[in-house]
């Protein structure tokens, strides 16, 4: 008896629930691809918000690591990706563009930088501006590596990534290897935590890092100058790097080295989605979509410190505190978005 009553109650309740959920009658549907790092999340949130509120489309986002998400894009399952680290995937992207599976939609973040960073207080105190300034035992002692007595530690790239080997070669070329270990932090999370932990404890930080990242918006890191980027020099270094990656560090040969080239993060859409005429307004919008590194960092800092981990709130904050996006969309869309804020 009791069971029957509960059963009826639960049916009534379920019925009531289904009425309250909004039955959005979306004419169009956009499937965004998202990655497991926070700058990509920001772009997905901002673009998604504009598409949903401004164009009235239903937005679905799928998050994953590079390989599966890119594969889904090539497979036409995902419509748009707003942050592609093109330079890391040159071959793959060019192949697919040639095959006609994807369409590139231009640059999102114009300059993403990588390099060697030192925390600002230490840099100011000891006048550290150039990598050559690091070459002293006194300075190395500031960043002492507890597991390698007598040496300093530069927290480097993860050893599986190419940048680890690049850093290794740079250390040798710059003569940093005498003073510092090229320390593999094991994972991206660990690298972030090592930098954040150093700042929290007020300890000197010497690390490889890149922008845009959420952490960069929160901590004050100074990029050390390196020899200016030069294509010929870089190509020469890359050969050594590839050789080491294949045959181990013993095959190192003296080479030239220079700073990392500033990478552009791009956007892409699946051909199936882009070729559909109905989607043209959205494609036009994405093509125009571009946010400078500094603003991405700011948004990431807001996301981490103020939003309480709420991406949508972060997107709203960006849209209400900036006007750059208004030029990406027609005025009617812009006003619709504004109204929803």
């Amino acid at each position: 008896m009791k069971f029957l009553r509960n059963l009826i109650l639960s049916f009534v309740f379920a019925g009531a629930m289904s009425l309250t959920t909004t039955s959005a009658n979306a004419q169009c549907k956009v499937h965004l691809g998202d990655f497991d790092w926070d700058s990509a999340n920001i772009h997905t949130a901002i673009a998604g918000y504009i598409i949903e509120k401004g164009y009235g489309c239903k937005v679905e986002a799928t998050k994953g690591s590079t390989t599966p998400i890119m594969a889904a894009l090539f497979d036409q399952q995902i419509d748009i990706i707003t942050e592609v680290w093109r330079d890391n995937l040159v071959q793959l992207i060019e192949d697919n563009v040639a095959k006609g599976t994807i369409v590139e939609l231009g640059v999102n973040t114009p300059s993403s930088t990588q390099g060697f960073y030192v925390d600002k207080p230490t840099a100011d105190k000891y006048g550290l501006k150039h990598v050559n300034d690091m070459k002293s035992e006194k300075i190395a002692k500031l960043f002492a590596d507890p597991e390698a007595p007598g040496k300093g530690r530069m927290t480097s790239c993860i050893s599986g990534w190419t940048c680890y080997t690049i850093n290794l070669v740079k250390h040798k070329v710059y003569g940093l290897d005498k003073y510092y270990t090229n320390f593999d932090p094991g994972s991206g999370g660990a690298l972030d935590a090592a930098i954040a932990g150093g700042f929290k404890k007020g300890k000197p930080v010497f690390s490889y890092y890149w922008t845009p990242t959420g952490l960069m918006g929160k901590v004050d890191l100074v990029k050390l100058e390196e020899p200016k980027y030069d294509q010929a020099c870089w190509d020469k270094m890359t050969k050594v790097v590839e050789d080491i990656k294949a045959n181990g560090p013993d095959v190192y040969k003296p080479t030239c080295a220079c700073e990392y080239v500033n990478m552009s993060l791009t956007k892409a859409a699946s051909t199936k989605f882009a070729s559909n005429a109905a989607n043209k307004p959205i494609i036009d919008f994405i093509k125009k979509y571009s946010i400078p590194t500094a603003d991405v960092n700011k948004s990431l800092a807001f996301y981490m410190d103020e939003s309480g981990g709420d991406m949508e709130a972060t997107a709203k904050n960006f849209l209400s505190s900036n006007s750059m996006w208004e030029s990406w969309v027609p005025s009617d869309v812009a006003s619709k978005v504004k109204a929803s804020l």
């Binding site: 927290t155 050893s159 599986g160 990534w161 320390f183 593999d184 094991g186 994972s187 999370g189």
Partner: peptide, 18 residues
């Protein structure tokens, strides 16, 4: 090894990452 502990775990991680 994912938090920078050196040892034989590195090699597994490196193998997987590459």
């Amino acid at each position: 090894s994912m938090i920078g502990t050196r040892g034989i775990g590195d090699e597994v991680l490196l193998g997987l990452q590459q």
